[in-house]
Design a protein around this nucleic acid. Structure first.
Lengths: 195, 195
DNA sequence: GTCTATAAAGCGATAGAC
DNA sequence: GTCTATCGCTTTATAGAC
């Protein structure tokens, strides 16, 4: 049995997993209580505004993780030559594969985008995707791709679609294939201008 | 004010829209009652097993619509020559664009795939996507694409990802772009073997 | 700061009048 | 067949003991 987290920072990732597994509405206080091992009083002590504040903290935490492990490396790669930009994009896709556990783990922002949660968390959801697309477009541009913005949206979309398909078909291979396609697309488009 | 539907068949599309807008959990009996203009008694008369039966009827109705307007034409196109197969694929993408209203309307099966509903409706969700992918793969094969199955999954995934992005970024253009990419990919791959 | 008990509202489902 | 009233349960949030 895992030890109960004792700080707000430590409980956020646990809540994140509960939200991913049960959805926003499905993650009732009882579920969150059991997942965290904390009593109701402790949870409301950490998050006085209740469930909505918890979800906001979770979305923010996910975005921080991506900012550090995905967006920042992409922007760094965009500052180098074509080869390093391409390497940075490939590294991003590996990082993403690990994060989503080959499609077995959902993207909370993506799931929120499809539901009622979209309105309440619009800024967090939209910001996450536009930051991702911006960073990826920068790296794609540096890699030599002719239409980096469009390709970035295509790749981020393919990743989201891959998660949907992997879960719908109960086959992680659908997500892995989507990532492979993204890798290939990034490579091919980069060569388009490698004249 | 729209007239209240008086048959089970007529109420299903209304319930479908309510489920799309509110999600499975968010579509409470009160919401479904208000959306349909029917009393609780009528709804339970049509769907004795309650909400779950309503959702099943909705998923089945959507699948029927796709079977008639999307899957069957694709399979018919697959039986013709390369040109007609390509035309069938293009027509499918137009049909899909209209159905999802350029990304303003979500795919209920896709949304269910990302949530808890996936387990309860696994067969309906998985069947929808595999039927779609199968029909599209057949048409792609007939169009001359070298790896029709992989490309079919890529295209269906891109459509789902396009819906996620369009809603997350509050920009239907993201969905339209995903469809354009799909159109291009189907055309390019078909030419690959046009030797 | 953490707990339990409870309040107030909403849920899905049912019963019974008509 | 359609309605309203209501049951039993769960929800989020709060209050008060420790």
């Amino acid at each position: 049995m895992a030890k109960s987290p004792t700080t707000r920072d430590a409980v956020v990732p646990v809540l994140a997993e509960a939200f991913r597994e049960h959805g926003y509405e499905g993650a009732s206080m009882s579920v969150l209580q059991e997942a965290s091992g904390l009593g109701r009083g402790s949870l409301y002590n950490f998050f006085p505004a209740g469930k909505e504040e918890m979800a906001r903290a979770v979305l923010d935490d996910i975005r921080s993780w991506f900012a550090e492990r995905v967006f920042a490396p992409l922007r760094a790669a965009a500052g180098g030559d074509r080869a390093s930009a391409q390497a940075g994009i490939a590294a991003m896709l590996d990082e993403v594969d690990g994060y989503f556990r080959s499609g077995r783990r959902i993207c909370l922002q993506g799931a929120f985008a499809l539901g009622r949660e979209r309105d309440r968390f619009a800024e967090a959801v939209g910001g996450y995707f536009s930051e991702w697309a911006d960073a990826l477009a920068a790296a794609l541009g540096a890699s030599g791709a002719p239409e980096p913005r469009a390709l970035a949206l295509r790749i981020v979309g393919a990743i989201q679609g891959g998660i949907v398909l992997a879960r719908a078909l109960d086959d992680p291979g659908a997500f892995v294939a989507a990532l492979d396609d993204a890798r290939r697309a990034a490579r091919v488009e980069a060569q388009t201008r490698k004249d």
